[in-house]
Design a protein around this nucleic acid. Structure first.
Lengths: 236, 236
DNA sequence: GAGTGGTCTAGACCACCCC
DNA sequence: GGGTGGTCTAGACCACTCC
């Protein structure tokens, strides 16, 4: 735990508990830095965190203010921070049904997104992910088998992400995502138990390791009545 | 233009032009700082920008690497940065058809999201937004009339965002967004000219001013075949 | 051990806002 | 003018990775 993180935690706690009046600026950066025994730069870095979380907003020449948040809904939330279903629905049992597990040469599209050649084999995996024994997501995933070797059905029943990070000791860097609505297809209707007229929330993702190499090109198709995607943006 | 922004611009140009080999780390921060005649902290701030854009990734004790990007699609892209349709489809003519424009007392839900009381009147606006004379988005918007006074049909035909920023001289701070898929309803089918079985990509947004006060609670319903939402996240 | 990014300091000047 | 956030400096020490 770094200094600026612990300062940010304390400030987050204060803001959420109503320690600071909501209609006034919080104390200026120099005063806060003195109170926490830090330099102003470190104090700023702590406040930067809270600004990026959408909790605070700065007004140059005026002060730093608390953003009046609105309440969240009760649906499952895919935030732009989370990676992997297992981390998303903590505490609930996650299981997987393997629909397809093959290895093949990639199409031009898949090879392009994974930045590999057409001759480099990829896993092609289709899984139904279940939470609390209810169908939640259909995932179609392509991964280069040279980069992520040793995938087995056992791993697919558990968590690919845990295997990559714990067993292969690779570090995940982040992801590009595209979110869209789509009509449900026959696979969706069969496995997600949704009706023919039900739409689907699809997340297309290219995950990359911390050295920038793409390791995953995936399509996650969510039941429209169980998932939303959230995002907070703050202008600079 | 600040120093770190101009350094970031130059580095972005270099990376995109292939100036640095893609399979090696770029030069270390101290060398780059010397080359650009800046302190290391300023150089870091420039690189921070490129990291947050998903262009670079740092590996502690090892170096800073270029992320191998994948190409974008040809659909309209709602990024987590953009605000307002007018800014989204630059160069193309945007027009609006006003379906409803009333003032009313808010429901509990609307009042809650706008952080106002039930007795504070709100505009209730439904518009069809067209680009190149083709229907693109159905927008339902609630705004407190005390906060954003003087809305007229003329403004609704143009851009509410421009009115807020230029005429009222208010500054927009950011937005919370929730993205979901939904079935199309009769309004969608009539005005977006979509079929009964076509899904909708809905973005629910609470926009807030730079003092943190919510000024807008809106539902934007997009044709599923014309819009996607993108997001880049990088682990720290 | 050498080299890298991660954090932190104690100042400084500037840009902007309100009085 | 006084107070605020925005930027910038020239160092320092630490944590991690590779050899």
């Amino acid at each position: 735990m770094t200094k600026y993180e612990s300062i940010a935690n304390e400030m987050r706690r204060r803001i959420k508990e109503g320690y600071y009046p909501i209609d006034q600026p919080i104390p200026d950066e120099l005063s806060l830095a003195e109170e926490f025994g830090s330099s102003r730069m470190t104090m700023r870095k702590a406040l930067d965190l809270l600004v990026s979380e959408g909790l605070l907003f700065r007004k140059r020449g005026h002060g730093t203010f608390i953003i009046q948040m609105y309440k969240n809904q009760s649906l499952n939330v895919i935030s732009d921070e989370s990676l992997g279903l297992s981390n998303l629905v903590k505490g609930k049992p996650v299981s997987s049904k393997i629909i397809q597990f093959t290895i093949e040469f990639p199409s031009e599209e898949v090879a392009g997104h994974l930045a590999i050649g057409r001759q480099e084999p990829v896993y092609h995996i289709i899984r139904l992910r279940m939470v609390d024994h209810e169908p939640y997501v259909m995932e179609e995933t392509y991964m280069p088998s040279n980069l992520i070797p040793g995938i087995t059905e056992d791993i697919l029943h558990a968590s690919i992400y845990n295997y990559i990070q714990q067993d292969l000791d690779l570090k995940i860097g982040g992801a590009h995502r595209t979110i869209m609505a789509d009509k449900s297809n026959e696979l969706d209707q069969t496995y997600l138990e949704c009706k023919k007229e039900d739409p689907i929330l699809q997340v297309v993702q290219v995950g990359f390791l911390n050295n920038g190499v793409p390791f995953e090109y995936s399509f996650s198709r969510h039941r429209y009545d169980k998932f939303v995607f959230t995002s907070v943006s703050v202008k600079k």
